[in-house]
């Protein structure tokens, strides 16, 4: 009997160790990424040969769709030129999935012809002018999600109220989580990070509501959910094991098909690097001038 007990105990220990190590690794990698992303805004000379490669986290939509059937260098060039033209009109800030944003758009049907929405970014996808992001909030106990096109010319401003990342790439599970995890007040004040700090990762783990769920969250290896095991039956656990594809992370070909090669990337970033930098500098100047005038409306 003792033997029987001891063995699982060892197993659990090793599993816990592994978990801790894995978590550490995941966190550290994220932090590293964040550091990489954050180093460039300071204007310091980056250490890599092609510095602009770090832009891929801040401006992921500048990279084209890797599907070779859809690629065309001229179209991508025109698309990038159009994106930069739009960026010269509106400040599209750096944000990630998990950041809290406030978006103001012109809406012909709204009162005052503008509409402002605050919410957490739960998804960001699309390449080029098709880039889009989804904001989620809970208004009057009712979950609301709005999908915005990043380069839509009706968007008047995009403001980052809280710049942070979460543990997962997509936060679609907030739809099945308790409403307090996706509730944000519309009069939220922007939290300004001191310059040069890496983008913080919020390690919060949400609690899911009991089933039924919109998706089989237990099969997606989510890090940002705490109570997934409570709602599972034995059947679900067995099926999860059966459906696992642990070999996929070793599939180099799959990884290759999903990404744009470094040579292509350096070409792309070399093309847009200067203009993006200039835009950023001009925004900074604007930002430095602004604080004298902005506090007044907040007080009022």
């Amino acid at each position: 009997m003792a033997l029987v007990i001891r063995k699982p105990a060892i197993d659990i220990l090793s599993a816990a160790k592994w978990m801790i190590r894995k978590d550490c690794r995941a966190l550290s990698s994220l932090v590293e990424k964040a550091e990489e992303a954050e180093k460039r805004p300071v204007g310091r000379r980056p250490r890599f040969q092609n510095p602009a490669l770090e832009y891929r986290h801040i401006f992921p939509e500048f990279l084209p769709d890797p599907n070779p059937k859809w690629r065309n260098s001229l179209r991508e060039k025109m698309e990038r030129a159009d994106m930069l033209k739009r960026r010269s009109q509106i400040d599209i800030p750096e944000f990630y999935v998990g950041s809290v944003l406030a978006v103001t758009i012109s809406d012909p049907h709204a009162q005052g012809k503008t509409n402002r929405f605050v919410g957490i970014c739960i998804e960001r996808k699309g390449c080029g002018l098709r880039a889009e992001f989804t904001l989620r909030n809970v208004v009057d106990h009712q979950g609301v999600e709005i999908r915005y096109d990043l380069y839509d010319p009706t968007i008047q401003s995009i403001q980052v109220l809280r710049l942070e990342k979460r543990l997962d790439d997509k936060l679609l599970y907030l739809r099945d989580a308790l409403p307090e995890y996706s509730t944000f007040p519309f009069d939220m004040d922007p939290e300004i990070l001191p310059e040069g700090t890496p983008v913080p990762v919020n390690p919060v783990q949400v609690k899911l509501k009991p089933r039924p769920w919109l998706e089989r969250w237990e099969r997606q290896e989510l890090k940002g959910v705490s109570n997934i095991e409570e709602h599972l039956k034995e059947k679900d656990r067995i099926r999860r094991e059966l459906r696992k594809t642990p070999w996929e992370k070793y599939d180099l070909m799959k990884e290759y098909r999903k990404t744009i090669p470094v040579e292509d990337q350096s070409e792309i970033w070399g093309e847009v690097h200067n203009q993006l930098n200039q835009l950023r500098l001009s925004r900074k100047k604007m930002f430095k001038k602004r604080p004298i005038s902005t506090p007044k409306p907040q007080l009022g």
Binding site: K85, S106, G112, I155
Partner: peptide, 13 residues
């Protein structure tokens, strides 16, 4: 068509 280099679209009341 709205050219991208033009200003953000605003609707007048």
């Amino acid at each position: 068509i709205h050219p991208f280099e033009e200003q953000t679209i605003m609707f007048d009341e």
